[in-house]
Write a protein that binds this DNA or RNA. Sequence first.
DNA 1: GGGGGATTGGAGAGCGCTTTCCGAGTGTTA
DNA 2: TAACACTCGGAAAGCGCTCTCCAATCCCCC
Lengths: 344, 344
Amino acid sequence: MRTERLPTLEDVAREAGVSRATVSRVINGIRNVDPQLHEVVWDAVGRTGYVPNRLARSLVTRRTGTVALVVSDSETHDDDPFMGRFFADPYFGRVVGGLMSVLRGQGVQLALQIVGTDDGRKRLVGDLRNGQADGAIVLSLPAVDPLPRMLTEGGVPAVLIGRPAEPVPIDYVDLANDTGAALAAEHLLTRGCQRIGMISGPADVPASSDRIAGFRRSLARRGHGWVPTETGNFTRDSGEIAMRDLLAANPQLDGVFVANDLMALGALAALRSAGRDVPGDVAVVGFDDSSAAVAASPALTTIRHPLEDMAAEAARMLLARIEEPAMRVASVIYEPALIERGSA
Amino acid sequence: MRTERLPTLEDVAREAGVSRATVSRVINGIRNVDPQLHEVVWDAVGRTGYVPNRLARSLVTRRTGTVALVVSDSETHDDDPFMGRFFADPYFGRVVGGLMSVLRGQGVQLALQIVGTDDGRKRLVGDLRNGQADGAIVLSLPAVDPLPRMLTEGGVPAVLIGRPAEPVPIDYVDLANDTGAALAAEHLLTRGCQRIGMISGPADVPASSDRIAGFRRSLARRGHGWVPTETGNFTRDSGEIAMRDLLAANPQLDGVFVANDLMALGALAALRSAGRDVPGDVAVVGFDDSSAAVAASPALTTIRHPLEDMAAEAARMLLARIEEPAMRVASVIYEPALIERGSA
DNA sequence: GGGGGATTGGAGAGCGCTTTCCGAGTGTTA
DNA sequence: TAACACTCGGAAAGCGCTCTCCAATCCCCC
């Protein structure tokens, strides 16, 4: 039962016949302790089954051994189904996996925090400043999010995954989204596509606008100054609708770049029901190389996003920043790669 | 910068001209405080920008407002790629989403803990007993895992997702895996399948053995006493291999139940390259109704697993148990449903 | 043999908060 | 007016730990 008192440092000290301070030193591996006492103390620890109380320790050391994974959302409704979608998406899991691969080895824990309101953000920053966690990895979803700035101003060590929408002196890792989109453009061109369209994500989120810009720029360089575009919201269904619209407006379309795999899945469905063969009639290139890409049929040609590596790097950067808060603000940009499968 | 001291209760008290105790009472909404003082105190809180320090509070209240999500794994290698797979799988995300849907409303945080070794488990239980978190939601992966028992013996409030492999007096939520598998059997039979096979998961994990048992039992009742079976490990590739083997040994196969969608994806690929039409030649039923099921082609007929609801219920159960540790041990079993799509 | 330096263990002051215990003030009744 | 019950705010004792001082011990060198 929870009720029985757990042994404390005091108990161990009594058992070992030394002072609390000595036990603390032994446990934390500080020298200046007679090897003989050392052994006596460890014996006592074993006998009492002592486990240090992290809370109490953190209170004085100002270190928790925890980093927060903050998902910053712009809450529409409180029971917004979006969050459910977000977690079910492999994106979230891949980030967690990447973070854990680094954190775990360092004995650092991950605490999940979701904030949807400005009030929530304020409380979060307050808690972090109070040493709730040593730092934060931030997944910022809204197009414009005050959180990154709040964090830096609060002096909270933090690393963003994905560049901030507005310039803020904060560490981040990101993907060269524009290069990735350019890769898609090159590929469609190389395949001989003449009428190329695009299904983009919301124009105000950085990852999305970078993909739009990269794709257009690359195409413009090869003489395609005009790219018919429909906008989706990164869900499967929005991709299906966008594809239908795009096709209606541009019946001769023979190639399309879809800004993520989930929407590409929808696009595939729309093309199928429009009787177009993929890649025969229309070539499709996705983005992310998510598990959906392999499951699709035809399997999606897509742009690989080394999300696990990026998250791992973010974790390393955060750990470094925690260690050395004055470090220069840094960013690491990853290069995407084209993965050729069946759809283009 | 992190260095500047944050306002403490003491500072607020000084600012308001009252004692620490009074401020504490006001903040925690305890009556017995003059409404006038009440206001004075909140003013002072606002002026100083005070945020209570959770750590310090937890130390004395023995409540953290945090629950741990424990993933208990049987570590093969330390840099086991399995964990990466696990997180990328929608399973993990769906659980997190379900938990958060309940926890978030209660202002409870989720701390992710991964343990792979017995030593890690011991440390974890010690930390939990010390009040690192108020309770734990446990995802137990290994076939036989000492953790559930350790948790109950340590008096740590905990709820398992998926029944324990060996009987332990611990709360859990689970899916009626056997019923789900029976549903799959019925469906294949109803379709008129005569030669039915199965691709199962590892026989020693409960979810898997329940599916095997449910499927066999249901089929046996309808005269199919023998079900050719291949075993996979829940990954796509293992499903592909298993399907190939199953087909080689049973060329006349016309129906197969695959114990999860991921393996079913592999099975589909194997069938395709063997030149079998799905569902024309061979009908395929998956399990989980994961996002992969929709992406597959043909889309998978599968067994729906209300994982989000289960996780949400687990969260509620845990919260209840934390509130009332002496409560009777409970379990909640969810009923699966057949989702008919293209593959069967 | 005595003084200086190095080494080691212990006492105790907090970290920021909650909460019990008391005393002081207020109102009510005889 | 005195006695009593009640309400409300403050002093202070911890929660379990770390770490700075400081005292005690030991060794070496002159």
